[in-house]
């Protein structure tokens, strides 16, 4: 692969593979963890966004996060405690394991696969472009002879060769 192609491909691949997460602070806060969980009141919003005036679910879950932070538990441990209690659906995004990997990997795999298809297609078009450029060059050469032939035939059709 030539450097310029490699350059573009590398830029795209590196961008596509970069994860986007706000840089985490040293210690997880209630707000950080609340963004990773779904409120169980039925609002279908992440815990930090549940805007019900009175929501016992939200208050209980937030209090539990605060307690567990006070106990010195890590973010992962706290989140796992909620999974143990409410099941996987409490997570705002599926964990990156098992069957759930499909949803995490398939988009990038599809885009990379599409990239390969585009690369091969464009390569074929470039090849076709070069071939037709060669043919048109050859046709230009033929044109000279065709005109000469026409002229000679024209001359011949009169009173014979002059």
């Amino acid at each position: 692969m030539r450097p310029k192609k490699l350059f573009i491909v590398l830029i795209l691949i590196s961008l596509v593979l970069l994860p986007v997460t706000p840089a985490s602070a040293d210690e997880a806060t209630v707000s950080d963890i609340a963004k990773e969980l779904i409120c169980q009141c039925g609002c279908d919003m992440v815990l930090s966004a549940c805007n019900h005036l009175v929501c016992d679910w939200r208050d209980t879950m937030l209090a539990s996060i605060e307690d567990q932070i006070a106990q010195g538990k890590s973010k992962e441990q706290i989140i796992q405690s909620f999974v143990d209690l409410y099941g996987e659906s409490v997570l705002a995004s599926p964990p990156k394991k098992g069957f759930n990997l499909v949803v995490w990997i398939l988009p990038f795999a599809a885009i990379l696969g599409g990239g390969v298809v585009i690369y091969l297609t464009v390569k074929a078009w470039v090849r076709r472009g070069r071939q037709s450029a060669t043919i048109s060059k050859a046709e230009k050469g033929d044109e000279k002879y065709r005109k000469r032939l026409e002229k000679e035939l024209e001359d011949f059709s009169g009173d014979g060769f002059r």
Binding site: P19, V20, T21, K35, E36, I38, D44, V46, G87, E88, S89, V90, L91, A92, S93, P94, N100, V103, W104
Partner: peptide, 12 residues
């Protein structure tokens, strides 16, 4: 298994 696919997935 019921799961949720929310903002963290789409943002990442």
């Amino acid at each position: 298994v019921k799961i949720s696919v929310g903002p963290p997935f789409f943002n990442q």
